[in-house]
Design a protein around this nucleic acid. Structure first.
Length: 215
DNA sequence: TCATTAAGTATGC
DNA sequence: GCATACTTAATGA
């Protein structure tokens, strides 16, 4: 990432001044897919996921992000329905800024426009990686996901960046598979000495070998 | 210590 | 072979 979101303190403050603050408890829906004119959601605290729901009840997770982060930018920019729903994963604080405020701020402020473009770029990368993974099997997808976690910081990680804070369930949502499949695949990785697991935590031990699985 | 949630496992489709 | 459902284990209040 060329410039982390957290360094845009001035732009962030401007957004905060223009929007309405809302808080969400874990599991609460921030916005639903298909909604229009929802505004820009600036995550100031907490962690959320973007996902798509299908009529049979299955869901596909598109991104998990931790504050500071932004969601809803696509429909602000093209004034169409959102494709994803967003849900709080922990106690989360959000500032909702109306679309027209965002657009006028973009016109006035180059840094702010760059901020939004960087948000878009990061999400496109995330989606590209997932699109490419279509041809891979579960084991390869999972290895790839673990590496992405590390190299793109799409998800949350501890400061040493080798320890991923993610549950098997979240990974299953991402990869379109079930949790037990993740559990057994991770067990294989662990037996091979590639990772180490604790409850809700995965530690990368052998990045090179993990990459070799999908390359 | 209890309730909640993550992880492990067995069974049936 | 994979998903569902049940069991066990860990965590935080």
């Amino acid at each position: 990432m060329s410039r982390p979101l957290s360094t845009y303190t001035e732009e962030w403050a401007q957004l905060a001044a223009m929007g309405i603050k809302r808080t969400y408890k874990p599991g609460e829906i921030i916005h639903m897919q298909g909604e229009k004119n929802i505004g820009l959601f600036c995550i100031t605290q907490g962690k959320i996921k973007n996902f798509v729901c299908f009529s049979d009840g299955t869901e596909k997770v598109m991104a998990i992000m931790e504050a500071p982060a932004i969601t809803g930018e696509t429909s602000v920019l093209d004034n169409r329905e959102t494709m994803f729903s967003a849900q709080a994963l922990v106690n989360t604080e959000v500032i909702v800024v109306p679309a027209k405020e965002v657009l006028s701020l973009m016109q006035r402020n180059f840094n702010f426009m760059m901020l939004l473009l960087e948000v878009c770029a990061e999400k496109i990368r995330c989606l590209e990686l997932q699109a490419e993974s279509v041809v891979l099997n579960t084991q390869q997808k999972l290895a790839r996901m673990l590496i992405n976690f590390y190299s793109y910081g799409i998800f949350s990680y501890r400061t040493d960046k080798k320890v991923l804070l993610v549950t098997h369930e979240q990974l299953a949502g991402f990869l379109g598979t079930t949790r037990p499949k993740i559990t057994s695949t991770l067990s294989m990785f662990e037996a091979q000495g590639l990772i180490r697991r604790r409850r809700g935590v995965i530690e990368i031990l052998d990045e090179i070998s993990l990459k070799a699985i999908f390359e």
